[in-house]
Structures are given as structure tokens and as C-alpha cells.
């Protein structure tokens, strides 16, 4: 029973913390720019606000437009139940396979891209085309990194991989991890649509990728799509932090351990958010046709990681 409660707690933690990451990134960027910036809780207000608004739907839209936002939001929420945060008991532990995680995420992307097409607008298709291309090119690097860690921990089960990573300390990390870390960072940037791959803050035809797909969305549809992309980022960052910053996965069930676990998790996520924000501030957005180069670079890194680990 206690395990179940912990699982529920972890599940809710990922979901609730997700918009905060976006808020912290935004706040950090504002501070770095020298402005005051909105509160870090602004994304929560935005979502609440969007839920209060009506949906404006194209007359050409079909039922895809109605179900797609729910699916796009539900996929990352289900996956949040796969991931251990501070304890290896997860809500959907029976299924927490890392390959399944990647492919289930792809299901969300699939419907998101269909949503882009459904309104018969030219921007949506444009966004879908770009998003599918970026997501496709990020896939090999992601799979290679996953392979490296699955082989190290001799399992594709996420909990087992995390436990394995937490057992060894930093110093026992093979050198190959450093490459894997960089490769995974590239993948995360690509998948969550941040600078230098995509800029979530503008709506410019020439550059937008993710925003183009959801340009016609409004009201609760937009809110659901936003929730989906927030949680997706949170999932990737959780994955990243639990593999590469192996602190805070406690086996104990005491309240103190749980409290510490939550605290460490929030600190780790905020730290990563700040790092991403600094990265965004110091880099210019890549031209769209430079993205394959960046993805290829990520792939080569993951490949080296694999080879260095092997040989």
C-alpha cells in the first residue's frame, strides 16, 4: 500500500512540476536579459486561463482535431507513470520499458502532427513536416544512448537502469557516459523544441516548428497540447537527471527519505532548467537545414559512447 502511495506521489510530482520547468527557463532567460520576467508559476496560470476559454475550431476539422489533444496530453501522462523519481516503485511499473517509452512518445508526436494537418491550414502541415523530420533524426541517437545504458545495466526496464546507475557513484562511470550525456542533451533539446533547434517563443513562419502545428489550436485543446509538451520535457529531463546525476533514488520508505527525494528531484530539475536557459541564451537558433548536422553530431557522439564503452 505504501508502495502504491509512493507511486502515486511520484506520478503526480512529475505532472505538477512539468510547467514549473518552463517557468524557470523563462524566468532565468528574463533575468539574464536584464528584465524582471514573469513569475515562475506563469505557465500554470496560462493553462488555467486557456481552460476557461472556448475552442475555436476550423469548419474543415474532423474528429482528429477533437481527440488528438487528449491523446497528445495523455501519452506523456501515462509515461510519467513509467518513471521512477525518488523511488523505484512506479505506478505503471509493469510496463516501464524504455523502448516502449520511446515508441509511446512517438504515438503522441504522430497525433500532434496529424492535428497540424487537420485544420486545412498551410502552417499546420509545415509544422508537422518539420517536427516529424526533427523527431526522426533525433531517434537514432536516442536509441543508441538507450542501447548503451541498457547494455550497461543489462535490462531495458527503466527502474532497473536507474537503480544500476545509482548503485555506482560518479567515479565508477565509464568515460563513455560523457559522450552519451552530450548526445542525450542534443536529443532532449530537439525533442522538447528548445533553442537552437526550435524557438518556442516566436511565431515566425520561417523558423517555427512546434508552434506551427498548434497554431490553430485554442482554448482547452491548446491547454491540453501545452500540458503534453510540458510533461514530455519533464520526462526527458527526469530521464537525464536520473541517469547522469545519480542522487536521490532512495529505497527507504520513511517520510524523511521521501521528503529528501522530492527536494533533491526539484533541485535537479531546476538546475537542468537553468542550464537549458543559459544554453538558450548563449546560442543562436540554427537554420532549419543545419538541424540535421546537429542531430548527426549527436548521433556520432552516441556512437563514440557505444564504441568507447565496448572497446
Amino acid at each position: 500500500m505504501a508502495d502504491f502511495l509512493i507511486a502515486i506521489l511520484q506520478f503526480i510530482l512529475i505532472i505538477t512540476i512539468a510547467p514549473l520547468i518552463s517557468g524557470i527557463i523563462h524566468k532565468t532567460k528574463s533575468l539574464l536579459r536584464g528584465s524582471k520576467g514573469a513569475s515562475i508559476f506563469q505557465p500554470y496560470y496560462n493553462i488555467l486561463k486557456l481552460f476557461q476559454k472556448e475552442v475555436v475550431l476550423s469548419k474543415d476539422a474532423s474528429w482528429i482535431s477533437i481527440i488528438a489533444p487528449y491523446i497528445v496530453a495523455a501519452v506523456p501522462i501515462v509515461l510519467a507513470g513509467f518513471l521512477p523519481v525518488f523511488n523505484s516503485h512506479t505506478l505503471f511499473s509493469f510496463n516501464s520499458d524504455i523502448i516502449a517509452l520511446v515508441y509511446t512518445l512517438a504515438l503522441g508526436t504522430f497525433f500532434l502532427a496529424l492535428y497540424g494537418f487537420d485544420q486545412a491550414s498551410s502552417f499546420g502541415g509545415l509544422g508537422s513536416s518539420r517536427e516529424m523530420m526533427v523527431a526522426s533524426l533525433a531517434e537514432p541517437a536516442l536509441m543508441m544512448v538507450i542501447f548503451t545504458f541498457a547494455l550497461q545495466s543489462n535490462s531495458t526496464n527503466i527502474s532497473t537502469i536507474f537503480e544500476h546507475m545509482h548503485k555506482g557513484e560518479f567515479l565508477q562511470f565509464p568515460v563513455s557516459s560523457i559522450f552519451a550525456l552530450m548526445a542525450l542533451y542534443f536529443v532532449i533539446i530537439a525533442e522538447s523544441g528548445r533553442i537552437p533547434i526550435d524557438n518556442p517563443e516566436t511565431h515566425l513562419e520561417l523558423t517555427m516548428i512546434h508552434e506551427a502545428m498548434i497554431l490553430d489550436a485554442s482554448g482547452r485543446s491548446l491547454a491540453l497540447l501545452e500540458i503534453g509538451s510540458f510533461i514530455k520535457t519533464a520526462i526527458f529531463l527526469t530521464l537525464f537527471s536520473n541517469i547522469f546525476i545519480p542522487f536521490g533514488l532512495y529505497e527507504a520508505n520513511s517520510f524523511l527519505a521521501i521528503f529528501l527525494g522530492i527536494l533533491i528531484y526539484i533541485i535537479k530539475m531546476s538546475l537542468l532548467a537553468v542550464i537549458i536557459a543559459i544554453g538558450e541564451m548563449s546560442l543562436a537558433k540554427l537554420r532549419y537545414f543545419r538541424i540535421p548536422d546537429a542531430m548527426m553530431f549527436g548521433f556520432v557522439l552516441s556512437l563514440i559512447s557505444m564504441i568507447v564503452y565496448r572497446l
Binding site: E54, V55, K59, S121, G219, R220
Partner: peptide, 12 residues
């Protein structure tokens, strides 16, 4: 909890 109204318009 959310606003469930939907307005149908031509695509922009």
C-alpha cells in the same frame, strides 16, 4: 472544469 464551448469558423 473547463469551458466546453466550441465555435466553428473558417480556417484563418
Amino acid at each position: 472544469f473547463a469551458n466546453t464551448q466550441t465555435r466553428i469558423t473558417p480556417t484563418w
